[in-house]
């Protein structure tokens, strides 16, 4: 009961904190992707795509490490319906030894990635989404030939216990596939901060 009261009291503050970086409703300009396991890709590489789950991800962050399998599962569950998952690594590969192209290849191979694992060396993809952490998920949806952000936040709400988690991203995709607006379009994201290089 106290926790409900607390959440109620904190809600204005949290929403304000969330909106500072929000790109909800923003149009995303299609981008090129260099993946370690699927080669060079564009949005046209997925001709029938209705939407994408773009998951900012990396090798060294402990919270991100918990989500390898869940990201592949999302792809398995929704690819036939025209929704694809792309894992994007925006971490600086000079600062973090584990984030090199070679280490990304090893991870994609070791964890049997079926989704593209994309290195965002310029951080331009992350900048478009104003991504703040790994892991952080966005669902973009094709609306009259424009790609619009319809969900942003966490992948789900329980890192170590997927069986207890509410699948925020999957729920958002399900809503969109049913032609509905997303019932929970935002959640709090956290994990390892993405540090942007000065341009």
């Amino acid at each position: 009961m106290n926790r409900i009261l607390l959440v109620f009291l904190l809600a204005p503050f949290l929403l304000q904190a969330q909106s500072e970086f929000s790109v909800l409703g923003k149009e995303i300009v299609p981008f090129e992707m260099h993946s370690v396991n699927k080669g060079k890709l564009t949005f046209d590489s997925f001709p029938n795509a209705k939407g994408f789950a773009i998951v900012f991800f990396c090798n060294h962050c402990p919270m991100a490490k918990l989500y390898d399998e869940r990201i592949q599962e999302l792809e398995r569950n929704f690819s036939a319906q025209g929704v694809h998952v792309i894992a994007v690594n925006p971490m600086d590969s000079l600062v973090y030894e584990e984030e090199s192209w070679k280490e990304m290849m090893k991870r994609a191979s070791r964890m049997n990635y079926i989704v593209p694992y994309v290195q965002d060396g310029s951080q331009n993809i992350a900048r478009q989404f104003n991504a703040q952490h790994t892991p952080q998920a966005f669902v973009i949806w094709k609306e009259e030939n424009h790609w619009v952000v319809r969900y942003e936040g966490s992948f789900d709400d329980n890192g170590e216990h997927p069986q207890s988690a509410t699948p925020f991203v999957a729920n958002a995709i399900t809503d969109l596939l049913q032609g509905k607006s997303v019932s929970m379009p935002q959640s709090e994201s956290f994990g390892c901060r993405i540090f942007y290089r000065k341009k």
Binding site: H60, C61, P62, M63, L66, D157, N158, G159, E160, F190, G191, C192
Partner: peptide, 16 residues
């Protein structure tokens, strides 16, 4: 010195 996770709250997500 590591980034880690711990179950600090009785239910729900782990804390970074």
């Amino acid at each position: 010195v590591y980034d880690t996770l711990k179950q600090l709250r009785p239910t729900g997500n782990q804390t970074v």
